[in-house]
Design a protein around this nucleic acid. Structure first.
Lengths: 201, 201
DNA sequence: TATTTAACTTAACATTGTTAAGTATAACAC
DNA sequence: GTGTTATACTTAACAATGTTAAGTTAAATA
């Protein structure tokens, strides 16, 4: 019964081909400016073929974003094993988070700003990758509180404050590239440093 | 020569009519989901009439956002006269900023997240209202540094850190309404308090 | 009263996401 | 090996979009 498997493999291959073509176009030209026909012509299939693999354009976006989140999660998880001191880990993680957003600005916006509008309801739900990214942050913050480095306030709130800070600076840098910001690295460090200091005991 | 003036007045009236119809639709249904035809039918004119008053859809969005910023600026300016202590003023301003974003979430996103993508180049430039909103924040922060309440670091950076924090929490609350956030007021206060503490000397 | 100008509309274009119907090829049953 | 069925894909079409060009009507001017 090797034929069925080969077929399935081929189907999965085309699925991935569609996905990576969509990703590349979305990221380079923006979700709105990419048509299904453009994606189709890039992979040299008819536009309707895409609909055999994905429900619609939003569904395609959804899977692209999922991949992005996975990449981010991997980047962060790697840091986890490298650094033991929780504060240092938090700093490095924050920096990695912002850097990721700046490296893949379109992906970041798609995932954390645009998609929520298109797919109301099931975002950041239990078990989702988005939730896992947040849980990662949350875990480090918890450790800081446990070691009494941070003020003993609500742990959830503390994590959310941290997220707000990095999310905010990431988006501002993405959306207003021409604004006379402080040098990027300096601003990133300032945001992280300020927030951590503010959270300390 | 009253005729010319009446004509001009009528033109301005229609312009405002278009603008407010567009605003209402953009805010309720989202920029992407509003067609020029929908706006036109709301004001009972043909779609092409809009093009006699605005360059294109993006231009219309631009003016709608301008109005939003003006409202925000007015809200903030009012606080300026009411509170003298710079730290207290900063706290209240931060809260007002976030509250504004939550009260007009679509407007906020249109102005600070969506529009930049559609109108590259001329955003937050000198003299713009967006710049004025930032300058307002900047001014309070400067005062805090001057009175040596805040650490003596780069004033620009300090303002940008503050903005990042409030921008971030505002967007998270807007975009992920179903996430199990800490109670809104508490989170708002935590973000502002943490940032200010982190900036203190 | 004739002519120019202003304000608006009708008709059309190319492009969009998406669906329904059709086609060819490969797998299967006998 | 032949006939049938299912799979994978395409062609053609729909309604809706932003936008432009060409018209029309009515008012202002001469």
């Amino acid at each position: 019964m090797g034929i069925k498997e080969r077929k399935a493999r081929e189907k999965e291959q085309l699925r991935q081909q569609i996905l990576s073509a969509a990703r590349e176009l979305f990221v380079n030209e923006g979700y709105e400016n990419v048509s299904m026909r453009k994606i189709a012509s890039k992979i040299e299939y008819s536009p309707t073929t895409i609909y055999l693999y994905f429900k619609d354009k939003a569904d395609l976006l959804d899977f692209v974003c999922q991949e992005t989140l996975l990449k981010l999660l991997n980047t962060l998880e790697q840091l986890k094993s490298e650094i033991s001191d929780p504060v240092e880990r938090l700093k490095k993680s924050g920096r990695a988070y912002i850097a990721f957003g700046l490296k893949y600005p379109q992906d970041y916006k798609l995932t954390f700003v645009v998609r929520p509008q298109f797919q109301e309801g099931l975002r950041l739900q239990e078990g989702s990758i988005g939730k896992k990214v947040f849980d990662y942050l949350h875990e480090i913050v918890s450790e800081c509180v446990r070691q009494q480095i941070f003020r003993q306030v609500d742990i959830d709130t503390t994590g959310q404050v941290m997220w707000s800070a990095v999310h905010g600076v990431t988006l501002l840098l993405i959306d207003f590239p021409d604004f006379p910001w402080t040098e990027r690295d300096k601003l990133m460090d300032a945001v992280i440093h300020t927030t951590i200091e503010g959270l300390k005991a």
